[in-house]
Design a protein around this nucleic acid. Structure first.
Lengths: 343, 343
DNA sequence: CTGAAAGCGCTTACAG
DNA sequence: CTGAAAGCGCTTACAG
């Protein structure tokens, strides 16, 4: 069980013939240390391969300096969040931050569980895509003085820094593309309407139809959850209509995959028999048949910006809240068809 | 920046009129505390909403009790590893363990970086899918007395607990299925041959061909890296041959996706013009067109078993090393075609 | 510029 | 069964 512990500050101090305070100073370089002393200490540090014990550091220092950030992710199976994690990590790597990930699997209870764990691990700050609705737990975090930045969506009951994407515009672009290519009967499979993101995408969808004078038909706007199963079932429901849509706009990647499964299982041709465009690009979207047309939101970029905001917030807790809204990009591949004559 | 710190042990002790030692005892319940005292302390704990500070606990306790496990993952974008993470997490959730993930992106330098970070975070133990080849860093970990369990592959230079899948048999089954269905000219896109897994899959491929008396043609066994790009390029190379294969067996999910991209971009029909079976199932494999036939290895199960082994190893560091080999399952969907007459 | 000392929040022999 | 005390490995006023 044992295993030798690492070299300690004290050992370095002894060997260098100085106090631990001095060694600590050269490591943190906050106060001035005489050049000669510093060199001597540095040498011993190198010699002994000394690495500060972060646990001890964290116990000692006040919040904001512990170099540990808690990351609360709704679903690690969703590639969108994986991209965000990668963006955050990139920065963490460079800045010697460590990240603890709590994957709460779209479960409020579990979100709470991870918040508790991460608190008792003394994280400096939290990055969270909050469980939808009134989120008392995340709200509490802020009230307790933690730096918090939200991704993908904010809180219903509190202002916060949030970095997200222009969901309205992204949805608008997708649907406009469908219209440009000749569709008029366009369905929308939306997600969990407790999530603001879902609502914004519905608005974008409706706005595009309005712009082109296409009446909105509530029968072909369907939604339940933002998951694969809903995609499978709702697309089936749509396709079963006596007057089925010729095109579907899906509100996220899981829904898209579900719809695709249904469409293929019925042997329907895309885009000839039914066109599809989805929110969220996937790195394997061109391996699909046909390659999928999709609204890309850069999770990586969201991650990068998020951690920058967090950094600022730790440095200045009084800075006003900001909302960063990134542009989406419509990636046109082959799942919507091409412009039809005369439309 | 501040934010009140949580309630401390001392506060609980004061309010309950006992020493901190006693409070600590009721929390860890290692020694006997008088029923009455215990009740009183429990009540105060509840009242104050006290939660032990894990950082302080970790600083104090010897290795093996800190409830923190380091997880070294080669590529968080690969859904196989995501499943493993989920399996591990499930258990962590139940046992009040916390997990720190280091995603080293197939980069040895970065693997080392994370090992250092995790060490200085005083993790109890490591779970690692080691960077291929002689892995001095992981070896060192073991020598320093950390509990280590490997996933997917072991170390070339040291015996260790490892949990993996029967790669040989999985590959064999895939290729045999291709043969049963009528193919004789079967190519193999393999991966990084430094990874034992890759080698085992090649063996399985060859064994299946041998069993049915099909000559092995080195020209159609191609391999470079285990990534998407290699899949795109190597499949193109195969398809460009004057005598191209009628079927391809790909060594992992990324390779499969890459090959699919090439096949679709050439407008080739699957399975009529080229059949494909891949190692690694993906949760969206049935959304592909056609739904992909694949060798499933349960990452979730691997994760679950891994953490159990780790638990045992922490409890008994002298237990002999074991290698757990899980079965794979061939999921037959529609990418290989059906039995042809007369074969 | 540097050291002695206190203390972060715990756990664990050692006494009693 | 319980408490006083030491100590895990650091950092940071406070003196000098």
């Amino acid at each position: 069980m044992a295993g030798q512990k690492g070299v300690s500050l004290k050992e370095v101090a002894d060997k260098a013939g100085v106090s631990t305070a001095t060694v600590s100073r050269v490591i943190n370089s906050k106060t001035v240390v005489k050049g000669e002393t510093e060199l001597r200490v540095q040498k011993v540090i190198k010699q002994l391969g000394y690495r500060p014990n972060r646990v001890a550091q964290r116990l000692r220092t006040t919040r904001g300096a512990s170099k540990l950030i808690g990351l609360l992710i709704p679903d690690i199976q969703n590639p969108f969040y994986v991209d965000i994690i990668r963006g955050i990590e990139q920065y963490a790597y460079a800045k010697n931050f460590a990240i603890v990930i709590g994957n709460f699997s779209q479960n409020e209870e579990r979100q709470k569980f991870y918040i508790e764990i991460l608190k008792s691990e003394s994280v400096d700050a939290f990055i969270v895509a909050p469980f939808p609705g009134m989120n008392e737990y995340v709200k509490e975090l802020v009230e307790e003085g933690y730096a918090v930045v939200c991704i993908d969506r904010g809180l219903a009951n509190m202002d916060l820094d949030v970095v997200k994407v222009d969901n309205y515009q992204g949805a608008f672009d997708a649907v406009e593309h469908l219209i440009n290519v000749g569709h008029t009967r366009i369905a929308h499979i939306s997600g969990n309407t407790l999530i603001p993101t879902t609502i914004e995408r519905i608005s974008g969808y409706e706005a595009a139809l309005n712009k082109y004078g296409i009446a909105i038909d509530r029968d072909i706007i369907v939604g339940r959850n933002s998951d694969h199963k809903s995609g499978v079932e709702l697309s089936a429901q749509l396709l079963d209509m006596s007057n089925p849509p010729t095109a579907i706009f899906t509100s996220n990647n899981l829904l898209t995959l579900g719809a695709l499964e249904t469409i293929h299982s019925r042997g329907l041709k895309i885009p000839e028999q039914v066109a599809i465009v989805g929110f969220d690009d996937m790195y394997w979207a061109m391996s699909l048949n046909p390659p999928l047309t999709a609204v890309r939101q850069s999770g990586f970029e969201i991650g990068r910006i998020t951690i920058e905001l967090l950094h600022q917030r730790i440095a200045d807790p009084t800075r006003p809240f900001v909302s960063i809204v990134l542009k989406t990009e419509l990636i046109v591949r082959n799942s919507c068809g091409f412009k039809l004559k005369g439309m």
